[in-house]
């Protein structure tokens, strides 16, 4: 399964390098001088950004599902993404000249705040109602999103905010996407704690029994989720459903042992987002449909299918 996924990811990456408004062929790479530039400046960075953000979003979804002990939540729909957007908006309003680093930092902080808030709400909900948690997450994310929209509307920044609320990769160029590498680093570091997250997903008693530092693992997980989400929103915008759909499919097929399954989750997320991005590039060629829209449509369908097929596996 891992090999098949890796092969698919490589194949999609190669396709991604050669699909776009400007024609690029394998032969042109060797003859036309501008062809290499196109790869280095645009197609290459775009493909890297898609692969990293797709993989990291899927991983952060898997981690959040373990922390909350519910399979129907993910950062981009349960408020963390909206929290990040709120942070970006606040920086834009109060410190328009701030550097991208400041923007990133504040977005991470507000994303963390939103994630902690969600967790606090969820812990007061009855554990026997898994779908209630999902609904509360959607409403919570919706309220935060509405706050962002309202502030942006008041400040006449709606169009500006739209860039972050609807993720897409057409703006990814060399020099403007490098933050995404940090996302890869954070997701990689989170993998080191894979066993801890798997144990926390088994519940409080199991966690204490195995001597897990419950609070520390919780904080670690929330930090990873918030940073991945915030940096993704800052660089490419919100891409919903990746963190929801991908971990669920992987758990169905390969289980919950994150040490073994997180790499599969990352590769599946990368491949699925890349496929959606390529699809968005060719369906209305030469125009583009944002990847968030494509994945939203596909993801909503997959989510419905999961809700209907998931009854036996609900926690």
């Amino acid at each position: 399964m891992a090999l098949a996924l890796a092969g698919m990811l490589v194949a999609l990456s190669i396709i991604s390098l050669f699909v776009g408004v400007i024609d690029l062929s394998w032969a042109a790479l060797w003859s036309e001088p501008g062809a290499i530039d196109l790869l280095v400046v645009s197609r290459g960075p775009r493909t890297i950004a898609v692969v990293i953000s797709g993989g990291a979003l899927a991983v952060s979804g898997a981690i959040m599902q373990m922390l909350v002990r519910n399979r129907f939540v993910e950062p981009m729909t349960a408020g963390t993404g909206q929290g990040a957007a709120l942070g970006i908006l606040l920086v834009t309003l109060f410190a328009p000249g701030a550097s991208i680093l400041v923007k990133m930092l504040l977005a991470s902080i507000t994303a963390l705040g939103a994630a902690v808030g969600f967790l606090a709400i969820v812990q007061r909900l009855p554990p026997v109602q898994p779908l209630l948690v999902a609904l509360v997450g959607l409403i919570y994310g919706g309220i935060l999103g509405a706050v962002v929209t309202f502030i942006a509307y008041q400040a006449d920044l709606l169009q500006y905010v739209e860039i972050w609320m609807n993720g897409e990769f057409s703006g990814v160029l060399q020099g403007r996407y490098e933050l995404i590498w940090l996302v890869a680093v954070v997701a990689g570091l989170a993998y080191l704690a894979a066993d801890q997250f798997a144990i926390i997903g088994m519940g409080r008693t199991a966690s204490i029994n195995l001597g897990l530092n419950y609070r520390q693992t919780m904080v670690l997980g929330l930090l990873a989720i918030s940073i991945v989400t915030a940096l993704t929103v800052v660089t490419v915008g919100m891409i919903p459903f990746v963190g929801l759909v991908v971990p669920n499919i992987v758990a169905r097929l390969a289980g919950d042992n994150l040490r073994r399954t997180l790499p599969l989750t990352a590769m599946s997320g990368a491949a699925l987002v890349l496929a959606c991005d390529i699809f968005g590039r060719i369906i209305r060629y030469p125009y583009e449909i944002p990847v968030g829209t494509v994945f939203g449509a596909i993801g909503a369908g997959l989510f419905l299918w999961l809700l209907h097929g998931a009854k036996r596996h609900v926690w």
């Binding site: 798997a198 144990i199 997903g201 088994m202 008693t205 195995l210 001597g211 289980g255 919950d256």
Partner: peptide, 18 residues
Amino acid sequence: EAAPLLTVRELVGFGRYP
């Protein structure tokens, strides 16, 4: 506390986590 999606060997393996 409902079962996680683990194999028996994986579950028993977590007993060694401490």
